[in-house]
Write a protein that binds this DNA or RNA. Sequence first.
DNA 1: TTCACGATTAGCT
DNA 2: GCTAATCGTGAAG
Length: 197
Amino acid sequence: MARRILQRSFYERDTITVARELLGQHLVHGRCVGRIVEVEAYVREYEGQLDRAAHASRGLTPRTRVLFGPGGFAYVYLIYGVHECLNVTAEGRGIPGCVLVRALEPVSGFDIDGEERSCSGPGKLTRAMGITRAHYGADLTRAPLTVHEGTRTEPITAGPRIGISHCADWPLRFYLADNRFVSRSPSKPNKRNPQVG
DNA sequence: TTCACGATTAGCT
DNA sequence: GCTAATCGTGAAG
């Protein structure tokens, strides 16, 4: 386990590029290692439209401060008063792109007590890896929370982001389609994610 | 200060 | 398919 840590230059690129290229890389915290198999991109704008689903779309606030800084830092927030979600900042200072890590394929360090899909969901993987809001603003090029070079041979599938009401049809969710650790099967149409076309 | 609501999950019908 | 749980955030008063 001497894989190279992804450096600042990896993160300080277009958010969608960073999102796609995070697939297959290894998220490391302490002894826990998980292979990233599902992410979502949250951008400033997409095809000329503001991304109103992104927390940063309301501007710089105490919570979103880290999004406006350099790429390669952790943005962790509490959702529904219950779960913590991990994002990786992208782009450079002043451009608030980030990538939500939605699912991991466990590699090592997890107590697999019959719960092999314990990292299949954004709230589940933070709990399994011990990532909390205490990691808000953590530099991902330094221990204890880092992303290491991994491998990917599978093709990338794009689809609508999950659980949002704005910009619900934008294809900014990226995942490895046949990987059983992805949080959900390809989305079927529903109230929040209506069929388009 | 108050208040509506959310990038989810587990558990139930 | 539906909903409770649970609380920080940000906008409004």
